[in-house]
Design a protein around this nucleic acid. Sequence first.
DNA 1: CATGAAATGAGAGTAACTCTCAAAAGATGG
DNA 2: CCATCTTTTGAGAGTTACTCTCATTTCATG
Lengths: 215, 215
Amino acid sequence: MPDNERMTAAHISSPADHPQPGLRERKKIKTREAIRTATYALVEEQGYDATTIDQIAERAEVSPSTVFRYFPTKEDIILTDEQDPILLAELRSRPADEPLRDTMRYVMREGARRGFDEDPEVARLRTHLMVQVPAVRSRMMESMSVIGRTLCVAIGERVGRDPDSLEVRVYTMSLLGGLMETALYWGEHDHEDDFAALLDRTLEVLEHGLSKENR
Amino acid sequence: MPDNERMTAAHISSPADHPQPGLRERKKIKTREAIRTATYALVEEQGYDATTIDQIAERAEVSPSTVFRYFPTKEDIILTDEQDPILLAELRSRPADEPLRDTMRYVMREGARRGFDEDPEVARLRTHLMVQVPAVRSRMMESMSVIGRTLCVAIGERVGRDPDSLEVRVYTMSLLGGLMETALYWGEHDHEDDFAALLDRTLEVLEHGLSKENR
DNA sequence: CATGAAATGAGAGTAACTCTCAAAAGATGG
DNA sequence: CCATCTTTTGAGAGTTACTCTCATTTCATG
């Protein structure tokens, strides 16, 4: 089961995305969406573990095979998102002389804002699943380490170092570790806090460490 | 499948560990060891994915049911270790006024040294699996986040802060993220580097960030 | 409309886990 | 040493995520 490549063909959209790319493409998008909404609905009704692929397929009105053609694992139905590549592109397009912290702050904020504006219900459910279902959390961490690779390159460029050097990799993963924990914290506390504020506190800690008995 | 509790009963050894705790206990330890060595041997021969639980059971001369009684998942056979609780205890026993970085440096070094001294072959195989097999890496990350919970308490105590505060959690997870990446780096490079030296570089980065075009 | 390509569905197969229940093996008191 | 109680084990059936293959359908194109 050598599945280093998690990305399905369906994930990679060609750079030029025409508004009307033919019936076939439109149908694929619709199927994808149907599977996702079916999953979210079922999970909300019965919970994650109780929801089987067959049920998802039935409600989405596709065959189980098709579900797997669109998403490599059950967790990916929940975690995958069209926005990730957008965010990565955005990260790359930031001015090269901008301090890394500012870049990350911006990108993270943007990601949270979009995800939440688009559909608050889904965002809520999703983060709850990240917190509660081990398999989902685990999958998220894995995708984090994939993103880490890309981030290393971006960060390596900026700093003028080998992206594969220990230093760059450690820096990147520690940053990501902190950011992910922030997201989990946010989800655990039912999104009561302002995410931007949490992010600021996080970046403060990452930059200056833990001061004793402050706050 | 609500499996928040990953620890099997077999993992929790009573505080008073007698040297001869009766035949029953001794047999359990032997069975556990048999399953582990069978697994390592088979994985070395045929690779991780190609090795099934049935094969493991057969070579260890137990039933498949028994394998699952001892280890909740296949990945745990490889990752679980009697040393982890020892290391955690050691961490707790460090002087309270020792700087955190020094503590972590010490504990990590100690862990790597022991694991490697004990059985270099197994240690090598294990880290390679962490690097190469997604499921194993993923499971390791999960256990990292469990360790993180414990670490938060320890760190919270030292710093005099709420262990559940965002600050402590972010600090802890970013630390762990960096440390794990160091371990992965070490494994990826076939343990050519001196782990202690890598650790020092890691802690330097975590403390002072990435300086531009140094080295 | 005909031909080629891509997407789908159906179905069989694998393997990791779970659960249940009866048999076996160690512990314990007499 | 034996009888009983408890723990561990094995056997087997069941579930489910995921894989692979092949025939059929559906869209694209000239």
